[in-house]
Design a protein around this nucleic acid. Structure first.
Lengths: 143, 143
DNA sequence: GTACTTGCAAATAATTTGCAAATAT
DNA sequence: ATATTTGCAAATTATTTGCAAGTAC
């Protein structure tokens, strides 16, 4: 298991979850993924490591990881059930519309915007969600 | 048909779509909705106006409206298949986590942020997607 | 009149659940 | 040892499609 997957595994055991062969395989897939993966894709790739794994387990594990904040759902109009690894802290995703790879970035400073919206609308803002779409360096030059 | 629904209807016919009883009913539901609605909810409400409407038609009509940009999908972790009316121009949605109502706001100025991310990552940013969550004035005081 | 639109029922796809067997700690 | 986790198959839910009949223009 490579370094990044080990970190993710620690998050699981720190919360009292057992580290099974299946979960390790799923974590390895996610850690090594460049982009966002849906449950079926995770399942396919995890089978390389752990042939007996079931799709149900993938669903259950992704739920746990999403709840822990280890992974985050990536939303876009074509489908909203893909996940990408998430770092600690509030980060946002930048998704390549060419190859689907996902990069995290520091969320700039939105506080001025949030305050403006709050006073404009009377809402108490609790959370925000920003996602950017574009072409990564490779896809930008390539096609 | 009230004013707002009439405007939406014009968008449909301007694109060569016929204005059927069913489509009018769906538009009326959307125009008068305070929040986001999923296909099943639209269907239930549209039946008041047009009892013979089928769920299939709701799906098909929502697809058309989303393609035209008349409505926009509202994404959040609990479900990503709800829609809210969208104004022309680039606006963002503010969703109340209490009652589910949706308000649009002018998207502040994100250009500095976008440029920073672009130069940081090498991506060519094509689109962005911002959604805020909070409590609307009523839900804020109420509970 | 004609092409677009509809509702139905059936097909497909996606996700969840119950449960006995397996396993990490 | 034991509570958690698993895989399977079945159940459920959501969405899409084919097609003959209906309807807006």
């Amino acid at each position: 298991m490579e370094a990044s997957a080990k970190k993710l595994a620690e998050q699981l055991s720190a919360h009292g979850y057992k580290l099974t062969r299946q979960r390790r395989a799923i974590l390895a897939v996610i850690a090594s993924s460049e982009g966002h993966l849906n449950p079926a894709e995770v399942y396919e790739r995890a089978k390389a490591d752990c042939p007996q794994i079931g799709l149900t387990t993938v669903y259950r594990t992704l739920d746990i990881l999403a709840k822990l904040g280890t992974i985050k759902r990536v939303h876009f109009d074509g489908g909203c059930h893909s996940y990408a690894p998430a770092s600690r802290g509030h980060r946002h995703h930048l998704v390549c519309t060419g190859c689907g790879c996902v990069v995290e970035f520091e969320g700039g400073d939105l506080s001025a915007l949030l305050e403006a919206v709050a006073s404009q609308t009377g809402f108490k803002i609790e959370d925000h969600w920003l996602q950017l779409f574009g072409k990564c360096p490779a896809c930008r030059d390539g096609s």
